[in-house]
Write a protein that binds this DNA or RNA. Sequence first.
DNA 1: AAGAATGTTATGTA
DNA 2: CTACATAACATTCT
Length: 262
Amino acid sequence: MPEGHTIHRAARKQREVLAGDTVVASSPQGRFTDGAALLDGRRLEDIEAHGKHLFYRFEDDLLLHVHLGLFGRFFTHKGDPPDPRGAIRLRLVGRDATIDLRGPTACEIIDDDDEANLLARLGPDPLRADADPERAWARIARSRREIGALVMDQSVMAGVGNVYRAEALHVLGIHPSREGRSLSRVEFDALWATVCRMLADGERAGRIVTVSAEDAGMPRSRIPRGERTYVYRQAACRSCGAPVTSWTLAGRRSWACATCQS
DNA sequence: AAGAATGTTATGTA
DNA sequence: CTACATAACATTCT
């Protein structure tokens, strides 16, 4: 479910929903029980997103790290807290909203060292004002790894996942298998700008729609599911109609248009 | 109803 | 040291 846009959106919405409240975090279940006793009843002070990672700062300097992984999801309930459904790993209870977390790969109490180590492994996040694209360029410009692997490597840039990898490289006409170091500075600048735009769009809309209104022949908000991407999970390119090839790149399925991309 | 999926990490191999 | 493959783990949907 989540690429970087989902995470930033969650942070923003949760800040809104919980703003000004005394928020109580209740006992995570299952394999995340370690931090339960510590979190219980503590007030939430801040939420921050870095790439696909979320950091919750609680009173008494307690820091909760959440990573949704492939399946993690938040569920927001207005009004009184409902009975827990399924394995709730974290429950944040505000004055008039409850947020449940299910299926994360990480939901753990960490210390400042852990946090520093995590952040040190993250490249610039296109959704953050403090992102420095030069760090990404420095890695890409001298790497012989495929660009399709590099853009999804969270230490190169933080927040891009499988959908944006396919879509960003497609609109730029760059084949995912090209070596990083074969990209020109102009191409990299366009790549960074595209990733920034796509992630920001996704955060605003709450879903990924990379196809333009012109190409779809309808407002982007009304494009049906399954038609919102040019090549991702497509058999034919939604831009030119040519066949889309798919193969495994960096452990994930990858797509490219035979004619648009080289 | 097996299998795939908007992810990461640890470990083994070359 | 780099790159790549595999397994493990989380859950929902088709």
